[in-house]
Design a binder for these strands. Sequence first.
DNA 1: ACTTGTCCTGTCATGCCGTCAGCTTACCGT
DNA 2: ACGGTAAGCTGACGGCATGACAGGACAAGT
Lengths: 215, 215
Amino acid sequence: MTGQVRTVDGRVAGRRGQETRQKLLDCLREMLSTSPYRDVKVIDVARMAGTSPATFYQYFPDVEGAVLEIAEEMAKDADTLKELVAGKSWAGKSGTTTSEELVDGFLAFWRKNDAILRVVTLGAAEGDKRFFKIRMTVLNAVAKPLAEAVKELQAKGQADKSLDPAAVAGSLVSLLASAAEHQKAFTSWGVKVKDLKPNLAPLVYLGVTGKKAPK
Amino acid sequence: MTGQVRTVDGRVAGRRGQETRQKLLDCLREMLSTSPYRDVKVIDVARMAGTSPATFYQYFPDVEGAVLEIAEEMAKDADTLKELVAGKSWAGKSGTTTSEELVDGFLAFWRKNDAILRVVTLGAAEGDKRFFKIRMTVLNAVAKPLAEAVKELQAKGQADKSLDPAAVAGSLVSLLASAAEHQKAFTSWGVKVKDLKPNLAPLVYLGVTGKKAPK
DNA sequence: ACTTGTCCTGTCATGCCGTCAGCTTACCGT
DNA sequence: ACGGTAAGCTGACGGCATGACAGGACAAGT
């Protein structure tokens, strides 16, 4: 179903080939987290993988193509983020717990994938549809269930109905993404990294429920 | 005092030189808004400016150096953002107006400079101190006075004192920046561009005052 | 050992990078 | 008007990355 892995010139990749391919992806990932995206060169990736540039071009059309591969892998992984929101309660103190766990889980995911997410974010901002779609997959993993939660609270009359649930959820997820990507900014505002969660969680709670977080 | 403009090899730039330099910057700016950052080449900028690559290198060490120049210019411009918050009232309905004007002004600024801000954001995320500083200058133009406003409200007992004003202000500014940079994301959530302001403004109000926005 | 298809790399044409020497142009004092 | 001086620009060049291809190495089955 998922079609075998293929080289650029159409051959199917065997065991050894897939290993090489994977090694190239791993090295590229490593490279992305140590050099500016603009400076990542095929030749460096190939060197690090102990192979030649020609080999790289056998498996990927260019650096961007390989980056997309890594990004898609990560997007699959983002599915686990759904469970941070789906089926969770926002009532009273358990709502506080929910928001804290959401912030924590989201920040952890971003931190784990920060290098690739940086590139995805850039690509999306530049209007590249493929990167945009990947970014939306990640954000939606949280935003969709979050919007559902807001809608339910509104239906129960426990939240401000004048707000669009999708907009609220989207805003909160954007906030989390931005905070995760630029943690250093908060540090320079005097907010220590370990204080990030206690400061963001009440805002999430506030956004979802429209009420101050209970003690 | 502000030292004249100098070429890379130390000559002082005269009238004609400054014109060329400026033309190169303008073309680079244009280029950034039409091509992915990774694909912006010195030779293209030079061609567009009707000059040669060698001339480019006379005024800038490399593409990044020229980008920094553009970014610094923009950062100066960001000073006007202060007035969106400084001295504004958050009481009752005038608070609604304040938050709406803030959202509007901020989004407009970001839209106007989106290409260069994209690169600045990337550079900052990659840990480049020069880009980080520029980004903070822009964000602080809003975040600092906003934190002041929150602090004052807290002092008057009109806002939740358990939250760090700097963290709240930083979060809200991050949210605005993220929303501005990824307006298309909201569109894909079914939030039209013109609905962005009415949806973000109440959140800002909510974040600052801790209360639901009045009608 | 031979065949077959996968896998890798040497090599090459092309194009961008970044530098330098040297030519042209503008400005200034006399 | 004229020459001197510094600013301004570019052609040319070595170096390196890109991307394509053909051919050799290798593994597996017969």
